[in-house]
Design a protein around this nucleic acid. Structure first.
Length: 419
DNA sequence: TCTGGGGTCCTAGGACCC
DNA sequence: TCTGGGGTCCTAGGACCC
Protein backbone atom coordinates (compact mmCIF):
# COMPACT_ATOMS: atom_id res chain seq x y z
CA UNK A 1 0.00 0.00 0.00
CA UNK A 2 0.99 3.61 -0.52
CA UNK A 3 0.13 6.60 1.61
CA UNK A 4 -0.01 10.07 0.16
CA UNK A 5 0.28 12.80 2.74
CA UNK A 6 -0.56 16.25 1.46
CA UNK A 7 -0.52 19.51 3.41
CA UNK A 8 -3.82 21.38 3.29
CA UNK A 9 -3.52 24.72 1.48
CA UNK A 10 0.15 24.59 2.37
CA UNK A 11 1.32 28.16 1.74
CA UNK A 12 -1.76 29.62 3.39
CA UNK A 13 -1.29 27.31 6.36
CA UNK A 14 2.33 28.44 6.70
CA UNK A 15 1.30 32.08 6.75
CA UNK A 16 -1.33 31.31 9.34
CA UNK A 17 1.09 29.55 11.68
CA UNK A 18 2.40 32.77 13.07
CA UNK A 19 -0.78 34.72 12.51
CA UNK A 20 -3.44 32.79 14.40
CA UNK A 21 -5.69 35.81 14.00
CA UNK A 22 -6.07 34.70 10.38
CA UNK A 23 -7.61 31.34 11.17
CA UNK A 24 -10.96 31.18 9.42
CA UNK A 25 -10.13 34.21 7.24
CA UNK A 26 -9.57 34.14 3.48
CA UNK A 27 -5.88 34.22 2.49
CA UNK A 28 -4.17 34.26 -0.90
CA UNK A 29 -0.49 34.00 -1.78
CA UNK A 30 0.92 35.74 -4.85
CA UNK A 31 3.61 34.56 -7.24
CA UNK A 32 6.97 36.28 -7.66
CA UNK A 33 6.52 39.91 -8.56
CA UNK A 34 3.12 39.73 -6.88
CA UNK A 35 1.81 38.73 -10.29
CA UNK A 36 -0.93 36.19 -9.77
CA UNK A 37 -2.56 33.97 -7.16
CA UNK A 38 -0.69 30.72 -6.58
CA UNK A 39 -2.32 29.51 -3.37
CA UNK A 40 -5.56 30.07 -1.48
CA UNK A 41 -7.06 29.13 1.84
CA UNK A 42 -10.43 27.36 1.79
CA UNK A 43 -12.14 30.62 2.71
CA UNK A 44 -10.54 32.38 -0.28
CA UNK A 45 -11.70 29.58 -2.56
CA UNK A 46 -15.17 29.95 -1.11
CA UNK A 47 -15.41 33.66 -1.93
CA UNK A 48 -14.56 32.86 -5.53
CA UNK A 49 -10.89 33.76 -6.01
CA UNK A 50 -9.69 31.46 -8.81
CA UNK A 51 -6.27 29.85 -9.00
CA UNK A 52 -3.90 31.88 -11.18
CA UNK A 53 -5.98 35.04 -10.90
CA UNK A 54 -3.94 38.10 -11.94
CA UNK A 55 -3.55 40.15 -8.77
CA UNK A 56 -4.27 43.51 -10.37
CA UNK A 57 -7.63 42.30 -11.67
CA UNK A 58 -8.70 41.14 -8.23
CA UNK A 59 -7.52 44.00 -6.05
CA UNK A 60 -11.04 45.22 -5.59
CA UNK A 61 -12.36 41.75 -4.81
CA UNK A 62 -9.61 41.25 -2.23
CA UNK A 63 -10.62 44.43 -0.48
CA UNK A 64 -14.35 43.79 -0.63
CA UNK A 65 -14.14 40.23 0.60
CA UNK A 66 -11.54 40.94 3.27
CA UNK A 67 -8.94 38.68 1.69
CA UNK A 68 -5.49 38.82 3.31
CA UNK A 69 -2.83 38.95 0.62
CA UNK A 70 0.74 37.67 0.96
CA UNK A 71 3.79 37.71 -1.32
CA UNK A 72 5.27 34.24 -1.65
CA UNK A 73 7.71 33.59 1.20
CA UNK A 74 9.51 30.54 -0.13
CA UNK A 75 12.10 30.57 2.62
CA UNK A 76 9.36 30.07 5.18
CA UNK A 77 7.56 27.41 3.12
CA UNK A 78 10.78 25.51 2.45
CA UNK A 79 11.66 25.44 6.12
CA UNK A 80 8.19 24.33 7.18
CA UNK A 81 8.25 21.67 4.47
CA UNK A 82 11.45 20.21 5.90
CA UNK A 83 9.86 19.99 9.32
CA UNK A 84 6.78 18.21 8.00
CA UNK A 85 8.90 15.75 5.98
CA UNK A 86 11.06 15.01 8.99
CA UNK A 87 8.03 14.04 11.03
CA UNK A 88 6.67 11.89 8.19
CA UNK A 89 9.94 10.07 7.67
CA UNK A 90 9.32 8.27 10.98
CA UNK A 91 6.32 6.50 9.49
CA UNK A 92 8.02 4.47 6.79
CA UNK A 93 11.55 3.62 5.72
CA UNK A 94 10.55 4.31 2.12
CA UNK A 95 9.47 7.86 1.46
CA UNK A 96 9.37 9.94 -1.69
CA UNK A 97 9.17 13.68 -1.22
CA UNK A 98 7.02 14.42 -4.20
CA UNK A 99 6.77 18.19 -3.87
CA UNK A 100 7.13 20.92 -1.31
CA UNK A 101 3.88 19.87 0.38
CA UNK A 102 3.42 16.19 -0.46
CA UNK A 103 5.09 12.88 0.22
CA UNK A 104 4.40 9.28 -0.70
CA UNK A 105 5.14 6.63 1.91
CA UNK A 106 5.44 3.01 0.90
CA UNK A 107 3.70 0.83 3.45
CA UNK A 108 5.23 -2.51 2.66
CA UNK A 109 5.05 -5.12 5.39
CA UNK A 110 2.33 -3.20 7.17
CA UNK A 111 -0.21 -5.97 6.58
CA UNK A 112 -1.21 -6.27 10.18
CA UNK A 113 -1.38 -2.57 10.82
CA UNK A 114 -4.63 -0.75 11.31
CA UNK A 115 -4.03 1.60 8.39
CA UNK A 116 -6.84 4.07 9.08
CA UNK A 117 -5.47 4.39 12.60
CA UNK A 118 -1.91 4.74 11.30
CA UNK A 119 -3.00 7.53 8.95
CA UNK A 120 -4.83 9.29 11.73
CA UNK A 121 -1.73 9.08 13.84
CA UNK A 122 0.38 10.74 11.13
CA UNK A 123 -2.08 13.54 10.85
CA UNK A 124 -2.18 14.21 14.52
CA UNK A 125 1.56 14.17 14.96
CA UNK A 126 2.33 16.41 11.98
CA UNK A 127 -0.20 18.96 13.13
CA UNK A 128 0.90 18.77 16.73
CA UNK A 129 4.61 19.05 15.98
CA UNK A 130 4.57 21.55 13.09
CA UNK A 131 1.18 23.23 13.17
CA UNK A 132 0.48 22.29 9.57
CA UNK A 133 -2.79 20.44 8.84
CA UNK A 134 -2.45 17.47 6.46
CA UNK A 135 -4.69 14.94 4.74
CA UNK A 136 -3.79 11.30 4.31
CA UNK A 137 -4.87 8.93 1.53
CA UNK A 138 -3.92 5.25 1.57
CA UNK A 139 -4.44 2.80 -1.32
CA UNK A 140 -2.74 0.04 -3.32
CA UNK A 141 -1.27 2.37 -5.99
CA UNK A 142 0.08 5.90 -6.01
CA UNK A 143 -2.70 7.16 -8.26
CA UNK A 144 -5.36 5.63 -6.01
CA UNK A 145 -3.61 7.03 -2.94
CA UNK A 146 -3.91 10.45 -4.57
CA UNK A 147 -7.58 9.78 -5.05
CA UNK A 148 -8.02 8.63 -1.44
CA UNK A 149 -6.33 11.82 -0.37
CA UNK A 150 -8.71 13.91 -2.48
CA UNK A 151 -11.63 12.22 -0.73
CA UNK A 152 -10.10 12.82 2.70
CA UNK A 153 -9.65 16.47 1.84
CA UNK A 154 -13.08 16.91 0.32
CA UNK A 155 -14.99 15.30 3.19
CA UNK A 156 -13.06 16.25 6.31
CA UNK A 157 -15.88 15.70 8.77
CA UNK A 158 -16.87 12.28 7.41
CA UNK A 159 -13.32 10.98 7.01
CA UNK A 160 -11.49 12.83 9.73
CA UNK A 161 -8.88 13.73 7.12
CA UNK A 162 -7.80 10.15 6.44
CA UNK A 163 -9.21 7.79 3.86
CA UNK A 164 -8.20 4.27 2.92
CA UNK A 165 -9.16 2.48 -0.28
CA UNK A 166 -8.64 -1.16 0.58
CA UNK A 167 -11.38 -3.06 -1.22
CA UNK A 168 -13.07 -3.22 -4.60
CA UNK A 169 -16.26 -1.63 -3.46
CA UNK A 170 -14.50 1.48 -2.16
CA UNK A 171 -12.32 1.66 -5.26
CA UNK A 172 -15.27 1.58 -7.66
CA UNK A 173 -17.22 4.07 -5.58
CA UNK A 174 -14.26 6.41 -5.52
CA UNK A 175 -13.66 6.11 -9.27
CA UNK A 176 -17.28 6.96 -9.98
CA UNK A 177 -16.95 10.02 -7.78
CA UNK A 178 -13.69 11.29 -9.34
CA UNK A 179 -14.16 13.68 -12.24
CA UNK A 180 -11.92 13.00 -15.19
CA UNK A 181 -10.18 16.37 -14.98
CA UNK A 182 -9.26 15.69 -11.35
CA UNK A 183 -7.41 12.46 -12.10
CA UNK A 184 -3.71 12.70 -11.22
CA UNK A 185 -1.87 12.54 -14.53
CA UNK A 186 -4.74 13.75 -16.70
CA UNK A 187 -4.41 17.43 -17.43
CA UNK A 188 -6.52 19.99 -19.20
CA UNK A 189 -5.82 18.93 -22.78
CA UNK A 190 -6.58 15.28 -22.32
CA UNK A 191 -9.55 15.96 -20.05
CA UNK A 192 -11.12 18.09 -22.76
CA UNK A 193 -10.74 15.39 -25.38
CA UNK A 194 -11.99 12.69 -23.06
CA UNK A 195 -15.05 14.69 -22.07
CA UNK A 196 -15.85 15.18 -25.72
CA UNK A 197 -15.85 11.39 -26.02
CA UNK A 198 -18.29 11.09 -23.15
CA UNK A 199 -15.72 10.14 -20.54
CA UNK A 200 -16.61 12.16 -17.48
CA UNK A 201 -15.33 10.16 -14.52
CA UNK A 202 -12.35 7.99 -13.70
CA UNK A 203 -14.72 5.05 -13.87
CA UNK A 204 -15.64 5.92 -17.46
CA UNK A 205 -11.94 6.20 -18.22
CA UNK A 206 -11.05 2.67 -17.11
CA UNK A 207 -13.80 1.41 -19.38
CA UNK A 208 -11.81 2.48 -22.46
CA UNK A 209 -9.69 0.07 -24.47
CA UNK A 210 -6.00 0.02 -23.50
CA UNK A 211 -4.99 0.50 -27.11
CA UNK A 212 -7.13 3.60 -27.50
CA UNK A 213 -5.78 5.11 -24.32
CA UNK A 214 -2.24 4.48 -25.49
CA UNK A 215 -2.87 5.92 -28.92
CA UNK A 216 -4.33 9.06 -27.44
CA UNK A 217 -2.21 9.58 -24.34
CA UNK A 218 0.88 7.43 -24.88
CA UNK A 219 2.20 5.06 -22.26
CA UNK A 220 1.78 7.75 -19.64
CA UNK A 221 -2.01 7.61 -19.95
CA UNK A 222 -1.95 3.84 -19.99
CA UNK A 223 0.00 3.80 -16.75
CA UNK A 224 -2.62 6.02 -15.15
CA UNK A 225 -5.31 3.60 -16.27
CA UNK A 226 -3.49 0.58 -14.81
CA UNK A 227 -2.98 2.40 -11.55
CA UNK A 228 -6.66 3.28 -11.32
CA UNK A 229 -7.47 -0.37 -11.97
CA UNK A 230 -5.45 -1.23 -8.92
CA UNK A 231 -2.30 -2.46 -10.61
CA UNK A 232 0.69 -0.63 -9.21
CA UNK A 233 3.05 0.47 -11.98
CA UNK A 234 4.50 3.64 -10.48
CA UNK A 235 7.08 2.92 -7.82
CA UNK A 236 8.65 5.23 -5.31
CA UNK A 237 11.25 7.45 -6.86
CA UNK A 238 14.07 7.83 -4.45
CA UNK A 239 16.99 10.26 -4.49
CA UNK A 240 16.32 12.59 -7.31
CA UNK A 241 19.36 13.84 -9.12
CA UNK A 242 18.29 16.88 -11.04
CA UNK A 243 18.26 16.81 -14.81
CA UNK A 244 18.17 20.55 -15.23
CA UNK A 245 18.34 23.80 -13.32
CA UNK A 246 16.57 26.91 -14.53
CA UNK A 247 16.59 30.60 -13.74
CA UNK A 248 13.80 32.40 -15.56
CA UNK A 249 11.98 35.62 -14.88
CA UNK A 250 9.34 37.88 -16.28
CA UNK A 251 10.39 41.50 -16.55
CA UNK A 252 8.68 44.37 -14.81
CA UNK A 253 8.28 46.05 -18.21
CA UNK A 254 8.92 45.23 -21.84
CA UNK A 255 12.51 45.12 -23.04
CA UNK A 256 13.31 45.99 -26.61
CA UNK A 257 17.11 46.35 -26.64
CA UNK A 258 19.75 43.66 -26.82
CA UNK A 259 21.69 45.35 -24.01
CA UNK A 260 18.79 45.01 -21.61
CA UNK A 261 18.40 41.32 -22.35
CA UNK A 262 22.16 40.85 -22.22
CA UNK A 263 22.26 42.06 -18.67
CA UNK A 264 19.39 39.83 -17.58
CA UNK A 265 20.82 36.76 -19.29
CA UNK A 266 24.20 37.40 -17.65
CA UNK A 267 22.50 37.55 -14.28
CA UNK A 268 20.42 34.41 -14.90
CA UNK A 269 23.50 32.54 -16.12
CA UNK A 270 25.41 33.51 -13.01
CA UNK A 271 22.53 32.32 -10.81
CA UNK A 272 22.55 28.98 -12.61
CA UNK A 273 26.31 28.73 -12.15
CA UNK A 274 25.90 29.37 -8.43
CA UNK A 275 23.17 26.78 -8.11
CA UNK A 276 25.38 24.27 -9.93
CA UNK A 277 28.31 24.95 -7.63
CA UNK A 278 26.09 24.52 -4.61
CA UNK A 279 25.23 21.04 -5.86
CA UNK A 280 28.84 20.31 -6.80
CA UNK A 281 27.85 19.76 -10.40
CA UNK A 282 29.01 20.98 -13.78
CA UNK A 283 26.87 21.21 -16.89
CA UNK A 284 27.66 20.21 -20.45
CA UNK A 285 24.94 22.17 -22.14
CA UNK A 286 23.04 25.36 -21.56
CA UNK A 287 19.91 26.86 -23.11
CA UNK A 288 18.93 30.50 -23.47
CA UNK A 289 15.43 31.64 -24.29
CA UNK A 290 13.61 34.93 -24.83
CA UNK A 291 9.87 35.50 -25.14
CA UNK A 292 7.44 38.26 -25.85
CA UNK A 293 4.33 38.68 -23.67
CA UNK A 294 2.08 35.74 -24.52
CA UNK A 295 -0.88 37.45 -22.88
CA UNK A 296 -0.78 40.34 -25.31
CA UNK A 297 -2.44 38.94 -28.40
CA UNK A 298 -2.29 42.41 -29.97
CA UNK A 299 1.51 42.46 -30.11
CA UNK A 300 3.69 40.50 -32.53
CA UNK A 301 4.97 37.34 -30.88
CA UNK A 302 8.47 35.93 -30.95
CA UNK A 303 9.79 33.03 -28.88
CA UNK A 304 13.16 31.46 -29.38
CA UNK A 305 15.25 29.04 -27.46
CA UNK A 306 18.75 27.92 -28.25
CA UNK A 307 20.50 24.93 -26.77
CA UNK A 308 24.29 25.15 -26.71
CA UNK A 309 26.54 22.15 -26.32
CA UNK A 310 29.54 23.24 -24.34
CA UNK A 311 33.05 22.22 -25.36
CA UNK A 312 33.70 21.21 -21.75
CA UNK A 313 31.75 20.73 -18.54
CA UNK A 314 31.69 23.82 -16.38
CA UNK A 315 30.09 25.62 -13.47
CA UNK A 316 32.10 28.79 -13.88
CA UNK A 317 30.06 31.96 -13.91
CA UNK A 318 32.47 33.47 -16.42
CA UNK A 319 32.14 30.61 -18.89
CA UNK A 320 28.38 30.30 -18.61
CA UNK A 321 27.92 34.02 -19.06
CA UNK A 322 30.18 33.98 -22.09
CA UNK A 323 28.36 31.11 -23.79
CA UNK A 324 24.89 32.39 -23.02
CA UNK A 325 25.76 35.82 -24.37
CA UNK A 326 26.80 34.25 -27.65
CA UNK A 327 23.56 32.30 -27.67
CA UNK A 328 21.47 35.37 -26.98
CA UNK A 329 23.05 37.28 -29.87
CA UNK A 330 22.07 34.42 -32.10
CA UNK A 331 18.39 34.44 -31.26
CA UNK A 332 17.80 38.12 -30.54
CA UNK A 333 15.70 39.93 -33.10
CA UNK A 334 15.08 43.62 -33.00
CA UNK A 335 11.58 45.01 -33.10
CA UNK A 336 9.93 42.89 -30.44
CA UNK A 337 8.85 43.71 -26.92
CA UNK A 338 10.38 41.03 -24.72
CA UNK A 339 8.71 40.14 -21.44
CA UNK A 340 10.50 37.07 -20.21
CA UNK A 341 13.83 35.31 -20.53
CA UNK A 342 15.75 32.53 -18.93
CA UNK A 343 18.77 30.29 -18.76
CA UNK A 344 18.54 26.53 -18.23
CA UNK A 345 21.52 24.25 -17.69
CA UNK A 346 21.41 20.53 -18.52
CA UNK A 347 23.54 17.47 -18.83
CA UNK A 348 25.24 17.33 -15.47
CA UNK A 349 28.47 15.71 -14.36
CA UNK A 350 29.85 15.74 -10.88
CA UNK A 351 32.39 18.45 -10.35
CA UNK A 352 35.19 16.06 -9.47
CA UNK A 353 34.49 13.59 -12.27
CA UNK A 354 35.04 15.74 -15.29
CA UNK A 355 36.53 14.20 -18.39
CA UNK A 356 39.38 16.25 -19.69
CA UNK A 357 39.13 17.00 -23.35
CA UNK A 358 41.96 17.00 -25.84
CA UNK A 359 41.24 20.37 -27.37
CA UNK A 360 39.29 22.56 -25.00
CA UNK A 361 39.18 22.57 -21.27
CA UNK A 362 37.85 24.82 -18.62
CA UNK A 363 40.21 27.32 -17.21
CA UNK A 364 41.52 25.78 -13.97
CA UNK A 365 41.99 29.18 -12.44
CA UNK A 366 38.24 29.73 -12.54
CA UNK A 367 37.76 27.05 -9.92
CA UNK A 368 39.53 28.93 -7.19
CA UNK A 369 38.13 32.23 -8.42
CA UNK A 370 34.57 30.90 -8.08
CA UNK A 371 35.32 29.62 -4.60
CA UNK A 372 36.40 33.10 -3.58
CA UNK A 373 33.34 34.73 -5.14
CA UNK A 374 31.01 32.26 -3.45
CA UNK A 375 32.66 32.84 -0.10
CA UNK A 376 32.45 36.62 -0.43
CA UNK A 377 28.81 36.46 -1.42
CA UNK A 378 28.07 34.13 1.44
CA UNK A 379 29.70 36.40 3.98
CA UNK A 380 28.69 39.76 2.61
CA UNK A 381 25.32 39.13 1.09
CA UNK A 382 24.01 37.67 -2.10
CA UNK A 383 25.34 39.20 -5.30
CA UNK A 384 27.90 41.49 -3.64
CA UNK A 385 30.44 40.29 -6.19
CA UNK A 386 29.11 40.41 -9.71
CA UNK A 387 30.37 40.54 -13.25
CA UNK A 388 30.61 43.87 -14.99
CA UNK A 389 28.13 42.55 -17.55
CA UNK A 390 25.53 42.46 -14.83
CA UNK A 391 23.84 45.64 -13.75
CA UNK A 392 25.70 46.76 -10.66
CA UNK A 393 23.07 49.32 -9.73
CA UNK A 394 20.26 46.90 -10.02
CA UNK A 395 18.94 45.71 -6.73
CA UNK A 396 16.47 42.88 -6.68
CA UNK A 397 13.54 44.36 -8.48
CA UNK A 398 11.04 41.75 -7.57
CA UNK A 399 7.86 43.23 -6.25
CA UNK A 400 7.09 41.71 -2.85
CA UNK A 401 4.92 44.22 -1.13
CA UNK A 402 3.23 41.78 1.21
CA UNK A 403 6.13 39.61 2.29
CA UNK A 404 5.75 38.02 5.71
CA UNK A 405 8.74 37.81 8.09
CA UNK A 406 11.30 35.00 8.05
CA UNK A 407 9.75 33.63 11.23
CA UNK A 408 11.81 30.47 11.31
CA UNK A 409 14.98 31.45 9.45
CA UNK A 410 15.92 35.02 10.49
CA UNK A 411 16.93 35.52 14.06
CA UNK A 412 15.86 39.14 14.08
CA UNK A 413 12.44 38.22 12.69
CA UNK A 414 11.65 35.49 15.16
CA UNK A 415 8.34 36.05 16.84
CA UNK A 416 8.41 37.65 20.29
CA UNK A 417 6.06 36.70 23.05
CA UNK A 418 5.27 39.07 25.86
CA UNK A 419 3.94 37.59 29.05
C1' DT B 1 0.68 49.43 -16.25
C1' DC B 2 -0.16 45.03 -14.15
C1' DT B 3 -0.81 37.73 -15.93
C1' DG B 4 5.02 32.87 -11.82
C1' DG B 5 8.70 29.68 -11.64
C1' DG B 6 10.73 25.23 -11.66
C1' DG B 7 10.60 20.77 -12.85
C1' DT B 8 9.57 15.72 -15.33
C1' DC B 9 8.71 12.39 -19.10
C1' DC B 10 7.42 10.92 -23.87
C1' DT B 11 7.08 11.09 -28.94
C1' DA B 12 7.75 12.27 -33.72
C1' DG B 13 10.75 13.43 -36.98
C1' DG B 14 15.20 14.67 -38.85
C1' DA B 15 20.02 13.66 -39.40
C1' DC B 16 23.05 10.39 -39.47
C1' DC B 17 25.34 5.58 -39.70
C1' DC B 18 26.34 0.99 -42.28
C1' DT C 1 8.33 2.15 -64.70
C1' DC C 2 11.43 0.66 -61.26
C1' DT C 3 15.51 3.58 -56.10
C1' DG C 4 16.55 -1.05 -49.31
C1' DG C 5 16.55 -2.07 -44.72
C1' DG C 6 17.82 -1.56 -40.22
C1' DG C 7 19.47 1.02 -36.89
C1' DT C 8 20.99 5.19 -33.33
C1' DC C 9 21.00 9.74 -31.53
C1' DC C 10 19.29 14.25 -30.90
C1' DT C 11 15.93 17.94 -30.56
C1' DA C 12 11.68 20.44 -30.31
C1' DG C 13 7.41 20.39 -28.72
C1' DG C 14 3.69 18.79 -26.03
C1' DA C 15 1.80 16.87 -22.16
C1' DC C 16 1.91 16.67 -17.26
C1' DC C 17 3.06 17.95 -12.11
C1' DC C 18 3.53 21.25 -7.96
Amino acid sequence: MYALVDCNNFYASCERLFRPDLIGKPIVILSNNDGCVIARSNEAKAVGIPMGAPAYQYEKAFKEKGVHVFSANFTLYGDMSNRVMTVLSDYSPDMEIYSIDEAFLKLQGFDYFDLPEYGKNMRTKVTQWTGIPVSVGIAPTKTLAKLANQIAKKFPSETGGTYVIDNEEKRIKALKWLKINDVWGIGRQHAKRLQAMGVHTAFDFIGLEDSNVKKMMSVVGLRTKKELEGQSVLGLEQVQVKQSIATTRSFESNYTELEQLSERIATFASFCAEKLRKQKMCCRSVAVFIQTNKNRKDLPQYNRKLLLKLPFATNSTLELVKFTQQGLKHIFKKGYAYKKAGVIVHDFVEENQIQMSLFANRNPRHISLMKVIDRLNLNHGQQKVRLASQDLQRVWKMKQLKLSPGYTTQLNEVIEIRV
